[in-house]
């Protein structure tokens, strides 16, 4: 699968409280969460969205709370992928589990600018900054995580358990 979109750029240590402030956690409705995504970090986030956007950020993206509402809000905002130097561990798991594409690639994240056009090939992990004419390779996922993604999420694996969990 390939996606192409424009970069919305942020710095390091973007925490889940600014991705989706807790005052909106009285709902788990993804459309409602999306309306407040990034609100406390970037008032113009909603205006920047064109559909299929790429968030590029520094180190430790998604640090802080375990709220799965954070990747849900980003995904429901129509963001196609988050590229970061690296991710905080709970956010990393959550993004994989809910199917928000994320890639670790310090060079691609650091060298792009707001508005750059980026093309991503998820099969090969290649990141192409079309605007700058630069090609990068992202860190591949470990096998077990590739398996979760391939099967369509963690809960699909739960159903395979001991002849099927929860029956």
């Amino acid at each position: 699968m390939k996606v192409k979109g424009k970069v919305i750029k942020y710095g390091g240590d973007v925490n889940t409280d600014v991705i989706i402030p807790a005052r909106y956690l009285n709902t788990a409705d993804e459309k409602e969460l999306a309306l407040h995504c990034m609100e406390d970090l970037d008032r113009d986030f909603q205006k920047k969205l064109r559909g299929g956007d790429i968030i590029a950020a520094g180190k430790n993206f998604g640090c802080g709370s375990s709220r799965e509402h954070a990747p849900i809000a980003i995904k429901a905002s129509g963001v196609a992928c988050v590229i970061a130097v690296d991710f905080a561990r709970i956010f990393y798991r959550n993004a994989i589990n809910i199917g928000l594409p994320i890639l670790e690639c310090p060079k691609a994240a650091n060298e792009c600018d707001e508005g750059d056009e980026i093309e991503i090939d998820f099969e090969s992990g290649a990141i192409h900054n079309v605007t700058k004419g630069k090609l990068y390779k992202s860190m591949p996922f470990p096998g077990f995580i590739r398996d979760i993604v391939k099967k369509g999420g963690l809960m699909k694996i739960a159903k395979e358990f001991d002849g099927g969990a929860g029956k």
Binding site: R67, E68, I90, R93, N94, I98, G153, L154, D162, A165
Partner: peptide, 12 residues
């Protein structure tokens, strides 16, 4: 962890 990881643990 997040809620889906916890749902997995509840189920399995």
């Amino acid at each position: 962890m997040g809620s889906t990881d916890i749902a997995f643990a509840m189920a399995t």
